[in-house]
Design a protein around this nucleic acid. Sequence first.
DNA 1: ATACATGTTGGAGC
DNA 2: GGCTCCAACATGTA
Length: 243
Amino acid sequence: MPEGPSILLLKEATKQFVGKKVLTVSGNSKMDLSFIKNKTIIDIKTWGKQYLICFKNVTIRIHLLMFGSYTINTSKEFKPRLHLQFKNGELNFYNCSIKIIEEELDEVYDWNADVMSDLWDSKKAEKKLLSTENTMVCDALLDQNIFSGVGNIIKNEVLFRIKVHPESIVTKLPVKKLREMIKEAVKYSFEFLEWKRKYVLREHWLAHSKKICPRDNISFSKGYLGKTHRRSFYCNKCQVLYK
DNA sequence: ATACATGTTGGAGC
DNA sequence: GGCTCCAACATGTA
């Protein structure tokens, strides 16, 4: 489930644990995380698709990858990768990737690259995009160093909205189009967030996993494009190829 | 019911 | 070293 907006919802739902002390740590993670027992969560942050549980001097990074899931104050039948027990409540993560971060987060993360952060910097994104060489827009949108939080659904929807073919080369886009792409990546992410919150995300898809272009009423093309080989749905008629 | 997917990482091979 | 491909992880959905 997790593109950036979904992780923001996870953050919202777990803010209740900030200030709480971890009473028990368990799970089937290969990593030894017992050292966070009796530590207090001082903050919960996100960077794109990454969920960050902050303790004094250390952060636990959770990435839900493609099929990760979580439960709050309930549990599933099978064993979680990570279970955190609090005095009132619990937090469980399943099938996720876990990392321990000991560095200062500001050293690890470029907050300006997170499309949903208050610190998002579109000018900086533009600079990064202009410094790419021979890069397709379908790959650029998925580049977490440029658009942290953007995933495949957002990619497909943004390109459809701005009428750009996924195989277009970033540096061949007119500057106006490039800026439109940057702007729309942010705008769509926030719309995604609100639709997801109301469980109506899917019904708002115009391109992703669709068969027919709603603008031209002709078949969408489907391909595993770019270096990332991720599914692209696009209309050869209304989405312009800049090459 | 078989195949595929909202993602990333690390290693092999060139 | 850098690029690309591939397997691996694992579950919900069509």
